[in-house]
Design a binder for these strands. Structure first.
Ligand SMILES: [Mn+2]
Ligand SMILES: [Mn+2]
Ligand SMILES: [Zn+2]
Ligand SMILES: [Zn+2]
Lengths: 132, 132
DNA sequence: ACACTTTTTTAGAATCATTATAAACTACAA
DNA sequence: TTGTAGTTTATAATGATTCTAAAAAAGTGT
C-alpha cells in the first residue's frame, strides 16, 4: 500500500481503516474540503466495508495533528477540514455553504504590522464571505 | 433609558431584558469579544435580575441580525461575538483562547484578485493565530 | 383604564455534532 | 507465540444551540 510508510513514519499504525481513509482523502489530484459527515458518505461510496464514525473522527484528528489535514476556521455547525495543507485562503459561499480555495497568489501579500508581546504568528488566514 | 430609541428604531421592543443586555454590551468605551456563556456571567454580575439563557441567545441573534454585533469565524466549541462591528481583523491566541483586535490599519490593504461568477464579496476577515 | 393583538420571555425538552467509555480486536515486536 | 500497546467499535455522555408552548409584557385602539 502506498500510504503504509507514510503512516508508519508518523507513528501511526497502518490499519485497514486508516489506509482506506488515506485513499479517500489523498489518492486524488485535487485537494478538497469536507465535513466529517461528508467524509463518512465518501468512504461508504468508495469502499465496501464500513468504518465506524468514531474511527473517522479519531483518524481525522490524528491526521490533523500530523499536519496531513487542516481545520478551516469558519462558523458552521459542522467543522470543515481541508486536504490542502499549503498556506492558502478561502472564499465561503454563504448561500451554498461551500468553501472555495483562494491561493496566496490571488491575495496580495499580507503584512501584519501589530506585534503581540511574547507571541509569534503561527498562521494568517483570510476568509472572504460571498453573497449573491 | 438611552437604548430605548435604538431598539424601537430597529423594530425591537425595548424590554427590560434587552435594555439590560444593551447596558452590558454597549455601555462601555471599549468593545469586547464574548461567548454566550461569558455574556450570561457578565449579566449576572452587573444586574440583579436573572435573564433566561434562551433570551440571551434570542437577543444576541436579534442584535447580530440588526448589525449591532458580529460573529467571529473561529474554530471553537463556543461561538464568539464582537461588539466591535467595524471592519477589522483578529489575532487568536491559541494558548489563552482569547481574541485580540487587529485594526485594518495594522494590516495592509487586502486585494482579492480572484472573482467568483455571480457572487459578490460581503466581508474579508483575517485571522492570525498566535503561539508562544 | 380596558380589551385585544403581537411580541417576547421562559423553563424545559429536543437536537445534533462531537467526545468519552470500555470492551473486543489488531499490529507488532520480543 | 505471547505480551503489550495501539486501534476500532458500538454506544453513551456531553454540551452548545435551538425548539416548544405557555405565561408575561408591550403596543394599539377605544
Ligand atoms: Mn474536531
Ligand atoms: Mn448562533
Ligand atoms: Zn482550502
Ligand atoms: Zn474584534
Amino acid at each position: 500500500m502506498k500510504y503504509t510508510e507514510k503512516l508508519r513514519n508518523s507513528g501511526l499504525r497502518p490499519t485497514k481503516q486508516r489506509l482506506q481513509i488515506c485513499e479517500v482523502l489523498f489518492n486524488t489530484d485535487k485537494t478538497f474540503h469536507f465535513t466529517i459527515n461528508e467524509l463518512e458518505q465518501k468512504i461508504k461510496k468508495q469502499t465496501n466495508n464500513k468504518i465506524s464514525l468514531a474511527t473517522v473522527y479519531n483518524t481525522v484528528h490524528a491526521f490533523e495533528k500530523k499536519g496531513y489535514l487542516k481545520q478551516i476556521p469558519i462558523n458552521s455547525s459542522e467543522t470543515y477540514f481541508d486536504t490542502n495543507v499549503t498556506d492558502h485562503h478561502h472564499f465561503y459561499d454563504l448561500k451554498e455553504e461551500k468553501l472555495i480555495d483562494l491561493e496566496n497568489s490571488d491575495v496580495g501579500p499580507i503584512n501584519i504590522l501589530k506585534k503581540i508581546n511574547g507571541k509569534k504568528i503561527k498562521s494568517v488566514e483570510v476568509l472572504v464571505k460571498l453573497e449573491d
